[in-house]
Amino acid sequence: MNTIKELYAYRQMIASLVKKDLRGRYKGSVLGFLWTFINPLLQLVVYTVVFSYILKANIDRYYLYLFVALIPWIFFSSALTVGASSVVAQKDLIKKIYFPRMVIPISYVTSCFVNMLLCFIVIFAVILFTGAGLNPLALLTLPIVMAVEYVMALGIALIASAVTVYFRDLEHILGIISMMWMYMTPIMYDKSIVPERLLPVFNLNPMTHVIECYRTVLYNKAVPDLSTLLFAAGLGAALLVVGCLVFNKLQRHFAEEL
């Protein structure tokens, strides 16, 4: 409870860190902020070429099918990998001055989240130009889906960032983990083609449900299944609670370990 109050008091710090991160990320590059959009678009092109011309997924409007899942996934995986090294990256600050340590992973995850929101502009543009159309009622649930994903990403980032301080290898291991995780989540393919035996694994993967929800709203133009959404929300909340507990326990010795 105290933590929440304190974090609220430090909201300006979170805001300014987010701003600094967003502004500083592409500093010095020619295209600058445009990279926020170019990067996912290029990934989209690669995957679309592979899966609609080479591997032939046979999905209608595959680019859109993939795009609405890929952008949320990029947010999640960058929250995981960038978030993990966030505390270590700010060690100078942590060693020298007091502030609630959670501010750091929170602001990193938030900045990744803002990035995703910006990418959604591109998603909507694509939907608009291709005439795919939208369902306004379904769209109303989109913020909820996003919030659930944010909570989930934050929970994971809290754990990863705190553990990385004590165990630096995690940063590198996470690259592989996040790739494995991507292929274990129905992003580039449909869940229906997953072999029966593997389904339990997919169902336990919190991101499966989140991605499904995004896809239902933006691709199928339907209101997501309430049970799927609730299940995802439950998993997200659990992750966040565990994340907070782990982080709070580990943060006591940050200054000495860094």
């Binding site: 304190e6 008091a9 909201r11 300006q12 710090m13 805001a15 300014s16 600050l93 001055i97 502030f99």
Partner: peptide
């Protein structure tokens, strides 16, 4: 960043709101 912007960043680390 400018001195002014840095005042905001730095002061926010002390837990000050905008």
């Amino acid at each position: 960043m400018s001195g002014r912007e840095n005042i905001y960043t730095n002061a926010s680390i002390f837990g000050l709101t905008k």
